[in-house]
């Protein structure tokens, strides 16, 4: 059984990487979870997961210089596939190999979370959304973040990828998020999974190079991620055909 989620938002800085790692750790209580830094042009998951000195990364795998197994690391109860940050690494990477990477990882895990690029302007940027079964849309309660999030959803559903739910992040105390999230849900195909408060702990965790749920597991933001994980019902894909599914994931014929 495997389900692949792309953690996405049209906008940078909304907290996709923070959320990928936090949601992954929260889900790892119940599932075997693999997180992949699929933001191959501006990778930074490695800095959130204490892997800044990782020798082999997704870039090497996408350049066909290493097998996937060489770029997987067991950290914080997760299987982590970090990506390198060099421009050369990005240039030499063949983004299409991500299909094989996902297919290979899918054989041996329950959930794959793809930390996705904050853009929809290239084939590489959109591929994680195409490959995923569902997306988790990370939103801040701002007009640009919500309208970019709508765009991501429409791309996803056009490409036959469903919406698992919304994560509001960096919610300030002054905001009563209920009204905004209720109105936002009218336009999205998935429910609000949780509202994560703006939290100094999250920034500290990033500076310490540790996941939020390892750095401050008791803080409000961390419990919001656990709440999100609980409200996510993971669907059982058939393990047997998983590899096939991702190698051949394409845009539906009807287009």
């Amino acid at each position: 059984m495997v389900e692949v989620f792309a953690v996405a938002s049209g906008k940078g800085g909304t907290g996709k990487t923070t959320s990928t790692v936090a949601l992954g750790m929260a889900l790892s209580d119940r599932y075997d979870v693999t997180v992949v830094d699929a933001d191959t042009g501006m990778a930074n998951l490695l800095f959130h997961a204490g892997l800044s000195d990782a020798e082999t990364t997704l870039h090497d795998v996408l350049a066909d210089d290493a097998p996937v197994e060489a770029a997987t690391y067991d950290r914080f109860g997760l299987t982590v596939v970090p990506c390198g940050t060099s421009l050369d690494g990005f240039r030499d990477a063949d983004p299409d190999r991500l299909r094989d990477v996902v297919a290979t990882l899918a054989k041996d895990t329950d959930i794959i979370l793809l930390d996705s690029p904050p853009a929809l302007d290239s084939r590489t940027a959109v591929l994680p959304i195409v490959l995923a079964d569902r997306i988790v849309v990370v939103l801040q309660p701002t007009i640009p973040a919500i309208s970019d999030g709508l765009k991501v959803q429409e791309y996803a559903t056009t490409y036959d990828t469903d919406v698992a739910g919304l994560l509001f992040n960096k919610v300030r105390e002054s905001e009563s998020i209920e009204q905004v999230s209720e109105k936002t849900e009218r336009y999205f195909d998935g429910p609000t999974l949780a509202s994560v408060p703006e939290s100094e702990r999250a920034r500290e965790a990033r500076r310490a190079g540790r996941p939020l749920l390892a750095h401050a597991p008791e803080c409000e933001a961390a419990s919001a991620y656990r709440e999100a994980a609980e409200s996510l019902t993971v669907r059982n894909g058939a393990a047997a055909d998983a590899a096939d599914r991702f190698q051949s994931a394409v845009i539906p014929e009807s287009l």
Binding site: I143, I146, S147, V180, R186
Partner: peptide, 11 residues
């Protein structure tokens, strides 16, 4: 407060 109502007006 004002920002939140701008978001709601958008929605």
């Amino acid at each position: 407060t004002a920002e939140q109502s701008a978001v709601e007006a958008f929605l």
